[in-house]
Amino acid sequence: DYEVGESVTVMDGPFATLPATISEVNAEQQKLKVLVSIFGRETPVELTFGQVSKI
């Protein structure tokens, strides 16, 4: 299970290999909103559970 505030690594898509912090969890739809730090700015990205891995 994923929790808000948890650190994960993006495994898929254009942000693969980047660390991210979970900002929202939708367990019903198996989706997460995460904040990816790009060029010093936090960018919100919506991903599925399968696109991230716990650190």
Rank of each mutant, 00 (worst) to 15 (best):
D1C: 11
D1E: 13
D1R: 13
D1Y: 14
D1S: 14
D1W: 14
D1F: 14
D1Q: 14
Y2T: 01
Y2R: 02
Y2L: 05
Y2Q: 01
Y2N: 02
Y2W: 14
E3V: 14
E3C: 10
E3S: 12
E3D: 08
E3G: 08
V4G: 02
V4H: 04
V4I: 10
V4P: 08
V4E: 06
V4W: 04
G5K: 03
G5P: 01
G5N: 05
G5V: 01
G5A: 03
G5S: 03
G5I: 00
G5L: 03
E6G: 08
E6W: 07
E6M: 13
E6Q: 11
E6H: 06
E6V: 05
E6P: 00
S7G: 08
S7Q: 14
S7V: 15
V8L: 04
V8W: 02
V8C: 05
V8P: 00
V8Y: 02
T9C: 11
T9F: 13
T9Y: 12
T9D: 04
T9W: 15
T9M: 15
T9G: 03
V10E: 01
V10A: 02
V10H: 00
V10R: 00
V10K: 00
V10Q: 00
M11K: 09
M11Y: 04
M11F: 04
M11N: 10
M11P: 02
D12I: 11
D12G: 07
D12Y: 12
D12Q: 10
D12K: 08
D12P: 01
D12A: 11
G13H: 03
G13Q: 01
G13I: 02
G13D: 02
P14T: 07
P14R: 07
P14I: 10
P14C: 09
P14K: 07
P14Q: 08
F15C: 06
F15V: 02
F15A: 03
F15P: 00
A16P: 02
A16K: 12
A16E: 06
A16V: 08
A16M: 08
T17K: 09
T17W: 12
T17M: 12
T17C: 12
T17G: 15
T17V: 04
L18A: 06
L18M: 13
L18Q: 08
L18H: 10
L18K: 08
L18D: 02
L18F: 14
L18T: 04
P19C: 12
P19Q: 15
P19E: 12
P19G: 09
A20R: 00
A20V: 05
A20H: 01
T21A: 05
T21E: 06
T21K: 11
T21D: 03
T21Q: 08
T21F: 08
T21P: 02
T21Y: 09
T21S: 05
I22T: 01
I22N: 00
I22S: 00
I22R: 00
I22W: 01
I22Q: 01
I22H: 00
I22Y: 00
S23T: 15
S23L: 15
S23C: 13
S23D: 06
S23I: 15
S23Y: 15
E24T: 07
E24G: 07
E24D: 08
E24M: 09
E24S: 09
E24A: 10
V25I: 12
V25F: 04
V25E: 01
V25G: 01
V25A: 03
V25W: 03
V25L: 06
V25C: 05
N26F: 13
N26V: 07
N26I: 10
N26K: 07
A27K: 13
A27H: 14
A27G: 09
A27F: 14
A27L: 13
A27D: 09
A27P: 10
A27N: 13
E28T: 09
E28G: 10
E28M: 10
E28A: 13
E28D: 12
E28W: 08
E28V: 10
Q29S: 11
Q29Y: 09
Q29E: 14
Q29A: 12
Q29I: 09
Q29W: 08
Q29M: 11
Q29C: 08
Q29D: 11
Q30R: 13
Q30M: 10
Q30W: 07
Q30V: 04
Q30A: 08
Q30L: 09
Q30T: 06
K31E: 06
K31T: 15
K31N: 06
K31V: 13
L32K: 00
L32C: 04
L32F: 04
L32I: 08
L32N: 01
L32R: 00
L32S: 00
L32Q: 00
K33N: 07
K33M: 14
K33F: 09
V34K: 00
V34A: 06
V34N: 00
V34F: 01
V34W: 01
V34C: 09
L35W: 11
L35Y: 09
L35S: 06
L35F: 09
L35K: 07
V36H: 01
V36W: 01
V36Q: 01
V36M: 05
V36I: 13
S37Y: 13
S37G: 07
S37M: 14
S37W: 14
S37T: 14
S37H: 13
S37D: 10
S37E: 10
I38S: 07
I38A: 09
I38M: 09
I38Y: 12
I38L: 11
I38N: 07
I38F: 10
I38H: 10
F39V: 08
F39R: 10
F39M: 14
F39P: 06
F39I: 07
F39A: 14
F39N: 15
F39S: 12
G40W: 04
G40E: 06
G40A: 04
G40F: 04
G40R: 02
G40H: 05
G40P: 04
G40Q: 05
G40S: 04
R41P: 05
R41T: 14
R41V: 15
R41E: 12
R41N: 11
R41I: 15
R41D: 08
R41Q: 13
R41H: 13
E42S: 05
E42C: 12
E42V: 12
E42P: 13
E42F: 11
E42N: 08
E42L: 13
E42W: 14
E42Q: 08
T43H: 15
T43K: 06
T43I: 15
T43R: 08
T43D: 06
T43W: 15
P44F: 15
P44G: 09
P44E: 15
P44K: 14
P44A: 15
P44D: 09
P44W: 15
P44V: 15
P44N: 12
V45S: 04
V45R: 03
V45T: 07
V45A: 08
V45I: 12
E46P: 04
E46F: 08
E46N: 07
E46K: 04
E46V: 09
E46D: 08
E46C: 07
E46L: 09
E46A: 06
L47Y: 05
L47P: 01
L47H: 00
L47W: 01
T48D: 12
T48G: 11
T48H: 12
T48M: 11
T48F: 11
T48E: 11
F49E: 02
F49P: 03
F49N: 03
F49G: 01
F49T: 04
F49Y: 12
F49R: 02
F49V: 04
F49S: 03
F49Q: 02
F49C: 03
F49M: 05
G50H: 11
G50T: 12
G50M: 12
G50A: 14
G50Q: 14
G50I: 09
Q51T: 04
Q51A: 06
Q51I: 03
V52N: 00
V52K: 00
V52T: 03
V52E: 00
V52F: 02
V52M: 02
S53E: 11
S53V: 12
S53A: 12
S53L: 10
K54T: 05
K54W: 05
K54H: 08
K54E: 03
K54V: 05
I55P: 10
I55K: 10
I55M: 11
I55T: 11
I55L: 12
